[in-house]
Design a protein around this nucleic acid. Structure first.
Lengths: 261, 261
DNA sequence: TTGTATTTGTTCGTATGTATC
DNA sequence: GGATACATACGAACAAATACA
């Protein structure tokens, strides 16, 4: 009959109200909040309490405040940063293995390719072509710029798939995998060759998408990940990644062979 | 040559240090932090600044503090709450459609079933049997208890798949879908029949897993989601969900037919 | 370019309710 | 129940940063 009456912290009620306003669209991105001193009056709390609330909102990515800004804090556009942070923490604390991350990435990218192959528009195809060309232009150049172009291509591909959740989760796990692997890379020998191979693979995926062949697009994207990352896996984990290929009709022998090369 | 000299907020350095200590395992779950007043001396900041830092850490799920506790804040076990929060915010702010969520869920659950069918141990099989029995025991009873048993089964299944990332993302998106759909459910007619059907479907998935048939397990889990949720989709979106079935060798006619029933 | 006013960042002191012994 | 140490909350003050005249 009665609800629990545990004390609700003052700062928490402030957070709830502002968060709800943003989530409900009553406060839009780039809009400004009133100054701290005005909010103090409005919420009838002390400045310290209000500031604790603003800090929490800031850490969740809802607002951003700068020292000395005569206007108040800025309502932020939605960002996946906090999602990335949570996921990165998950990877560290729960000790996610590289295999687990790669399995997830194979799953997401294969489905992204499938959906893109089935439903891409001509404009989206052109956009992917442009990003592909941009990647080619960076072959042999700065590896950071190449990685950026690679990311842009993946983003275009994800948009063509028409699923924002897929797009975001793909980019998040992409990041986490890279940070995990980058610590293991001693020296990237044959950078130029690697870039060329990467472009070639992306081109094959794009070709399958252009021809509207979901199964083939998924298979190639899977194969790309296996070829690129399986060297970082121990034998048992590598086998489990190769086993995923059955779902794509991949040739197990070819997968195993490419690892040895 | 020179690094940017933008001011780093005091509270941020406190957050970084404590967060790093937890992430590195120097501070373990259930351990206590020193009291605020001691931390004030250690970090050489004021009480307010320190409290802002603690609030941020609390909102990220790293610590939990209680008023009057003679000991300090408690380091929390890793929780997916902040991940859930970020994802729920994503669903609201980015206006994720039910189709997008269901596509994601189909993908995750199908792969979970695949991996479980390929790699489950006998103990894991027994555990899933137990959860299955628990679900059956709740047929016709409290629908909340049934939903809990359902969740427990999915968790056991995810553990059998051996991928924590799959397990967590599956449960998160499961939650988000339910909150999105629950607002549309006016009255759950035929609750008993729904529960029985749900059990039957779960049993078929479990059977395929027991027999080590990944493709069949994935196909059934896909079909279950289509049958259960497609009534909430508009025709165009429903078709796109049905189109996913091609990846599982599902019969398009059967999928379309079950919607009309 | 240089002040000046305003705002946020930070500190300190104090009062109050709470959990543990 | 009382004593003690704690987190919570408030308010005033100063320092640093920003925007604008």
């Amino acid at each position: 009959m009665f609800a629990p009456a545990r004390p609700v912290r003052a700062y928490e009620r402030v957070v709830e109200q502002i968060e709800a306003a943003i989530l409900d669209g009553k406060l839009l991105p780039d809009q400004r909040l009133p100054s701290e001193r005005e909010l103090v009056k409005e919420f009838a709390v002390s400045r310290s309490t209000l500031r604790e609330a603003l800090r929490v909102l800031q850490s969740r990515g809802f607002i951003q405040s700068r020292a000395g800004d005569p206007q108040g804090a800025v309502v932020q556009h939605f960002s996946t940063d906090s999602l990335r942070g949570s996921m990165a923490a998950l990877a560290r604390v729960e000790h996610l293995t590289l295999l687990e991350l790669l399995q997830f990435r194979v799953m997401v990218e294969a489905w992204t390719c499938r959906l893109a192959a089935a439903g891409r528009s001509d404009e989206q195809l052109e956009e992917m072509d442009r990003e592909m060309a941009a990647m080619r232009a960076h072959i042999g150049g700065d590896s950071e710029a190449f990685a950026e172009a690679d990311l842009a291509f993946h983003a275009a591909l994800a948009r063509a798939a028409g699923n924002k959740l897929l797009e975001i989760s793909g980019s998040v796990v992409h990041d986490v995998v890279l940070t995990l692997v980058s610590s293991k890379i001693t020296a990237s020998r044959n950078r130029r060759k690697q870039m060329q191979e990467s472009c070639e693979r992306h081109a094959r995926v794009l070709s399958a998408i252009r021809e509207g062949d979901p199964a083939e697009a998924a298979r190639i994207s899977y194969q790309n990940i296996v070829d690129y990352y399986s060297v970082y896996l121990v034998a048992a984990d590598r086998q489990r990644l190769v086993d995923m290929g059955a779902a794509f009709g991949a040739d197990p022998a070819a997968a195993a062979g490419s690892v040895g090369s």
